[in-house]
């Protein structure tokens, strides 16, 4: 018994997701196109645009994690009750979240793509379309699934072992890590092994690849800094997602019921 439709509805009617995941990111795109692009040579425009698309999409996708974390923290009793006294099974619940975040990941990425094309097109008077839409769709769906796996695992670790007092901070961890790695790639020379190993860098690099059709650079701000191989990026992201899903499945079966009031004792 899956809960995909109500999950999608709950997420799509979440105003915070639309504000922080879309409106705020479009604001960053406008800044990128009109403020941070001064003196940019015309040859660098495609890579520059792809970098902004990749990083803002990563930030946008990470806001999904906040909504999912909050819904888990609120639903510990509902989940425990549901597994015992309804047709809901942990596997079905995880599948619903996985499929739902895949759809949401794709939705957010498409919105960011449209916004990037519109904003940067208006700035540079160019039509910049993604070179590899299939790769882009795959990366977006996988990115959504990863954010879900990460947020569910982190939240269940906290719920099962620490209590709800720490949930507010934990729900923002995926967002914070996205900013650390996303901005890090733009501003710092991050070693390539760390880029391959970090699922956040994997997501932005794969999105970059989908947009430009070429291998992503080690430094997003410098196209001449060497490139990353997409099979390794994909393998790393799949491995992270798979491992986290296994963790989430185990933790969900042993979910500990927490009172919401516990989370309010901040």
């Amino acid at each position: 018994m899956n809960v995909l439709r109500p999950f999608l509805k709950a997420m799509l009617t979440n105003r915070s997701l639309w504000f922080w995941g879309v409106a705020f990111m479009v604001f960053w795109l406008v800044l990128g196109a009109f403020i941070f692009s001064s003196g940019l040579p015309s040859t660098a425009i495609p890579a520059f645009t792809a970098s902004w698309f990749a990083v803002t999409s990563l930030f946008s996708l990470s806001t999904l994690a906040i909504g999912i974390s909050a819904s888990i923290a609120y639903a510990t009793a509902a989940l425990a009750y549901g597994f015992r006294f309804t047709l809901l099974k942990p596997r079905d619940y995880l599948f619903s979240l996985l499929a739902g975040t895949g759809v949401l990941g794709l939705t957010l990425t498409v919105i960011m793509l449209g916004s990037t094309v519109g904003v940067f097109g208006a700035r540079f008077h160019l039509t910049l379309l993604p070179a590899d839409p299939v790769a882009l769709v795959g990366a977006a769906v996988l990115a959504g699934a990863f954010m879900m796996a990460l947020s569910v695992t982190l939240m269940l670790l906290v719920v099962n072992f620490l209590g709800l007092r720490n949930t507010s901070f934990v729900s923002f961890v995926p967002l914070l890590l996205s900013y650390v790695f996303g901005l890090g790639e733009v501003n710092v020379a991050v070693p390539s092994w760390l880029l391959y190993g970090s699922p956040f860098s994997d997501i932005s690099a794969l999105l970059y690849q989908g947009f430009t059709g070429g291998a992503p650079p080690v430094e997003l701000a410098s196209a001449s800094s060497g490139t990353l191989g997409w099979p390794w990026l994909l393998a790393s992201l799949l491995a992270w997602t798979g491992l986290l899903l296994l963790g989430a499945a185990y933790l969900l079966r042993h979910i500990r019921v927490r009172s919401i009031e516990e989370g309010r004792q901040m």
Partner: peptide
């Protein structure tokens, strides 16, 4: 079955 409200918070719908 129960009327405890906490069990009906599976999703915010």
């Amino acid at each position: 079955s129960t009327n405890l409200s906490e069990v009906y918070r599976l999703l915010s719908v």
